[in-house]
Design a protein around this nucleic acid. Structure first.
Length: 841
RNA sequence: GCCCGGGUGGCGGAAUGGCAGACGCUGAGGACUUAAAAUCCUCCGGGGAUUUUUCCUCAUGUGGGUUCGACUCCCACCCCGGGCACCA
């Protein structure tokens, strides 16, 4: 161990000894445990819970270091801080590892948790460990089941057939991440993954689409703009109309319903295009004049519609069905086509093609020789000519309608309103808002997840497991092969059960839940982690929520955060909470990279957090991740620059060590500066305090806060020896403030210094100091002097000097005078104590 | 294609319309030492003039603009990173 450490600093700073000592003291004093207390202002700071796999690396560490600074600063600021930690413990890697090593997923998971916990403790993060949760424990996942049943009651959980990735060799369902190289099985890289339809469970996130979108407004001042934007795009609200086009000459064919946001262009429709998967197609093609050729084209198109990645760049293809539809507005008969670029999952799976005013339609129609008809002419500029038009005119703010019967001359906006009303009156269409957001498929055909608490009875159908029978426990000894049917289905003692209604033999549901379910509400459980009557006590959640500061990676900008917001709204409607949004503020920290890519086990570029702690100590590791880049930016790991942080902490240690004895026991009280040295020191330390306070509170510029503290330290060194002309009480003041400012980032060292300075009470109980404005004032200032905006010199003046005085001094400066010579000053810009700019002509 | 974010020394980065490059790393030189490590001190964007000292000039992706003054604000473009992607 010793040979791995940095040695020979000669300073006596021994991070291992210090860190162990203070971690023990904090634990003994229960320094970071907090309880709901209505008399104190609360602050809930939370970092996204980790999936415990592999080693805890500097990427994780950075996330927690940022959260810990916030927690510690807020505590010093007098807040009742809750800062918990837990484990996202269900998931596929545990199952895979278990298959590989022939162990139990629980064993693998718990081993990793123990490892993660040990490392986090070694870094001294100020967590309330009593609140620790692990999502794979029945005490936790029973509440997943309980919530599921509540959603089932309310029709928010349902089952439907849905497409999944299926590996024919594994005979099992694959998660999206297990589909590699654009469509192959991760384990059988020569085997193409198929798309199969099976019955799956869904949660009705779409029921909250409108709220999820609207409430983003409430987050605008606390969440990063881009996260809000990404969510907005994901939800994808689109206002338009559905319109029915009757099908000509096909007996019993119901009308084709299309979705459009450009109702105003309906007179320009020259075709109807259906998705290859459109349910009406078999009927249309049956005995169609297009014949067998169309059938085979459809079959081919349906087969190749697997790979989603190529969709965007794919050439538009289609074929004519031989059938015609009637435009309900113009009465015109237009051909019905099938197009590979029409998605069945969006809208109605059918569109009207308006080539003149939609680029995709344009490309399609030009390729197949379908006519182009202009129905909106631009208000300004050249008139559109149908024969020449290759780029669709799709700006609807600057046009007026033509070739549109009674709607000619209207603006597109007015036309949309009028046409929609007309369609509704005639019963041929209606205004409709659709969303890109889909319901959340939570079924996983896996073992290591929460069993879905439902029983299938041949007599009573699908029966929810009664609350009193929760939790539905995972069977302790599953057969895990990674092949064939899902592990739960292969475990008879799990599957076979009695129907809760009739008592007859029945089968349990064998799907488990997506692990995003676990992380959708875990932060509520922290409020009340041991409750066995409810997921959490409402009063506790009321006190602690919303989360004041949530911190995590941008990778979770959509799914985790959207599901959490959904869950919150469901819980609100269940009467469990009163608020609408779980987290008031969100911070997305940058990734730690090595060689330009994020640290990950698979990339083999991880820098283990523990190695770092071993080599330099936790405080240096923490300080460096905070110093090397602003927290929102990605950080390229550099083994060299960490030395700077290590050296700095040593410098601080030596400084305090040198003076500790002489200031111990010296009384505090009002400080004033008596000598020039004292003035300089006190000014610098209070100026630093002012700016560091700002950096912590409002700007989150931890890197520049550290730079300021380094500058302060350099200044103190320059004033050495402090024994001369600096009284002990001033020395003490300076060193104490330095220590306090360092505390949120290098807490162990700061505690040690605090003790060295003679404090009996731990620093964790200390308050954040207030700066003294009087002491920050400069007596003399150097004012840069510009001539016509260019720097030409500087003048020394007493702080607060007036314009006349400063101009006089500037004119007396030989260099400045040279630039003024022979010219007339036409304007003087003077910012007191800051700048003088003389404009000459 | 659309939407975000970003381009500043050898490197990480600082600068909330007012001295560009704080702070740190690297590098160079010096002090201490028998020596090394550690520590301490000094220097470190380019070009030019003056070569004790200082001055001029260029420079924050490129080109314009606003302003007494722009890394910062506005417009256009280039490059890099990320997200979404035939969403009707």
């Amino acid at each position: 161990m010793a040979e791995q450490n940095i040695s020979g600093t000669g300073s006596g700073y021994d991070p291992h000894k210090i860190e162990e000592k203070w971690q023990r003291r904090w634990a003994e004093a229960r320094a970071f445990e907090s309880e709901a207390d209505a008399t104190k202002p609360k602050y809930y700071v939370l970092e996204m819970l980790p999936y415990p796999s592999g080693t805890l690396h500097m990427g994780h560490m950075r996330n927690y270091a940022i959260g810990d600074v916030v927690a510690r600063v807020k505590r010093m600021r007098g807040f009742n801080v809750m800062h918990p930690m837990g484990w996202d413990a269900f998931g596929l890697p545990a199952e895979n590892a278990a298959i590989k090593n022939n162990t139990h997923p629980r064993e693998w998971t718990n081993k990793n948790i123990a490892e993660f916990q040990r490392v986090l403790r070694r870094f001294g993060f100020s967590y309330d460990w009593r609140r620790e949760i692990s999502t794979c424990e029945p005490e936790y996942y029973r509440w997943n089941q309980w919530f599921f049943l509540r959603m089932l009651d309310r029709g928010l959980a349902y089952r439907k057939k849905s497409r999944v990735n299926w590996c024919p060799k594994c005979c099992t369902v694959l998660a999206n991440e297990q589909v590699v190289n654009g469509g192959y099985c991760w384990r059988h890289e020569d085997t193409l993954v198929e798309s199969r339809e099976i019955e799956q469970w869904f949660l009705k996130t779409t029921a909250y689409a409108e709220q999820l979108l609207d409430d983003l407004k409430q987050l605008e001042c606390g969440w990063p703009e881009r996260v809000i934007l990404m969510q907005r795009n994901w939800i994808g609200k689109s206002q338009g109309a559905k319109v029915k086009f009757a099908v000509a000459n096909v007996a019993g064919a119901e009308p084709i319903e299309i979705f459009t946001t450009r109702m105003d262009t309906i007179y320009g429709a020259t075709a109807v295009i259906l998705a290859p998967a459109h349910p009406l197609l078999p009927k249309l093609l049956n005995e169609s004049p297009a014949g067998a050729e169309a059938h085979s084209k459809l079959a081919k198109m349906r087969q190749t519609s697997v790979k989603t990645e190529e969709l965007a760049t794919m050439e538009k293809e289609g074929f004519f069905t031989g059938r015609y539809a009637t435009n309900p507005f113009s009465g015109e008969k237009i051909p019905i086509w099938v197009g590979n670029f029409i998605l069945m999952e969006y809208g109605t799976g059918a569109i009207m093609a308006v080539p003149a005013h939609d680029q995709r339609d344009m490309e399609f129609c030009r390729k197949y020789g379908l006519p182009v008809r202009v129905v909106v002419q631009p208000l300004e500029g050249e008139e559109l000519v149908e024969e020449k038009l290759m780029a669709a005119f799709d700006e609807h703010q600057h046009g007026k309608l033509v070739n549109s019967g009674p709607y000619n001359g209207l603006s597109p906006e007015a036309a949309i309103a009028k046409m929609t009303t007309f369609a509704e009156q005639k019963g041929i269409g209606r205004a409709e808002t659709i969303f890109r957001l889909k319901d959340w498929g939570i079924s996983r055909q896996r073992y290591w997840g929460t069993p879905i608490p439902v029983i299938h009875c041949s007599k009573d159908g699908m029966v929810p497991v009664p609350d009193m029978d929760l939790p539905v426990l995972l069977p302790p000894n599953p057969k895990l092969t990674g092949m064939g049917e899902s592990p739960l289905a292969a475990t008879p003692e799990f599957v076979n059960t009695a129907c809760p209604k009739c008592g007859g033999p029945a089968r349990r549901e064998t799907d488990t839940m997506d692990t995003f379910v676990d992380s959708s509400w875990y932060f509520y459980r922290y409020c009340d982690p041991h409750n066995d009557q409810a997921p959490y006590d409402a009063a506790m959640a009321d006190y602690w929520f919303p989360i004041d500061q949530y911190i995590g990676g941008i990778t979770h900008a959509i799914l985790h955060l959207l599901y959490s917001r959904f869950w919150c709204k469901v819980m609100r409607d269940l009467g469990l909470i009163k608020h609408n949004e779980p987290a008031a503020r969100l911070f997305t920290q940058g990734m730690v990279q090595k060689g330009g890519v994020a640290m990950s086990k698979s990339k083999g570029n991880v820098v283990g957090a523990e190695d770092m702690a071993q080599k330099y100590g936790a405080d240096t590791g923490r300080l460096y991740t905070l110093f090397a880049a602003p927290p929102e930016k990605d950080l390229e790991w550099s083994e060299e620059s960490i030395e700077g942080s290590w050296r700095f902490l040593n410098r601080v240690y030596r400084l305090v060590d040198r003076h500790a004895e002489s200031v111990r026991g010296v009384k505090g009280g009002t400080i004033h500066a008596a000598t020039a040295k004292e003035k300089t020191l006190l000014r610098k330390v209070h100026q630093t305090l002012r700016r560091v306070t700002q950096d912590f509170e409002t700007r989150w510029h931890f890197n520049s806060a550290i730079a300021l503290i380094m500058e302060l330290t350099n200044e103190i060194y320059l004033q050495e020896p402090l024994e001369k002309d600096v009284r002990p009480e001033v020395r003490r003041e300076v060193l104490e403030l330095l220590t306090l400012m360092l505390a949120p980032m290098a807490p162990h060292l700061a505690e040690e210094l605090w003790e060295m300075l003679g404090h009996v009470d731990g620093l964790w109980k200390a308050a954040w100091p207030a700066f003294d404005e009087v002491l920050t004032r400069e007596e003399k200032v150097e004012i840069p002097v510009q001539v016509c905006g260019r720097l030409r010199g500087k003048v020394q003046v007493a702080a607060g000097s007036g314009e006349v005085e400063v101009v006089r001094l500037a004119q007396a400066d030989p260099v400045i005078a040279q630039h003024l010579a022979g010219k007339r000053i036409v304007k003087i810009i003077f910012v007191p104590d800051k700048l003088l700019n003389l404009v000459v002509a």
